[in-house]
């Protein structure tokens, strides 16, 4: 069962980190710890193998204007964590249903979808950085694409 082999990898990972070594070599250790190569599941095979993160492009998508220094500083750390995420590719999860959440209580019911007036409207408006009654002001909207 591949879960068991991944468990071994994870334990090696924890051991490795706590021994105070640089975690830069973590992934190598993980791969070395895996005895047999695991075939990717069919769900993964259908899509292309994930490409390594392009931090500038991600920052653009996430609407965060990073400085070139930040891109340089974040890129190796993000790559390292995403490589580490990759260990889940080695686990056979073929027939396992995904869980959206812990789902501890199925009895939760939804409330009626009806609008209610919030009592403290002034406080909400007072928090708006740029307000011109009755509008929230923003600068011009340009379509760069």
């Amino acid at each position: 069962m591949s879960v068991a082999s991944a468990l071994g990898c994870g334990a090696a990972f924890l051991r490795h980190l706590s021994s105070g070594s640089r975690s830069g070599s973590t992934l190598i250790l993980l791969r070395a710890g895996r005895t047999k190569p695991r075939p990717y599941s069919s769900s993964l095979a259908r899509c292309a193998a994930p490409e390594p993160p392009d931090v500038s492009r991600l920052a653009d998508t996430a609407r965060i204007s990073l400085t070139p220094e930040e891109v340089e500083q974040f890129a190796p750390k993000i790559r390292q964590v995403i490589d580490w995420f990759g260990q889940l590719q080695a686990v056979d999860l073929e027939s396992i249903e995904p869980s959206l959440r812990a789902d501890t209580d199925a009895s939760t019911s939804q409330r009626e979808d009806a609008p209610e007036t919030f009592g403290n409207r002034e406080a909400i408006i007072a928090a708006v950085p740029s307000y011109d009654d009755p509008y929230i002001k923003v600068p011009k909207v340009l379509n760069k694409e």
Binding site: L44, R46, C47
Partner: peptide, 15 residues
């Protein structure tokens, strides 16, 4: 394209 490789697999691990 990466949803199945990461988020979905993580949800399967949650199961």
């Amino acid at each position: 394209g990466y949803y199945e490789a990461y988020y979905k697999r993580a949800q399967q691990v949650r199961t």
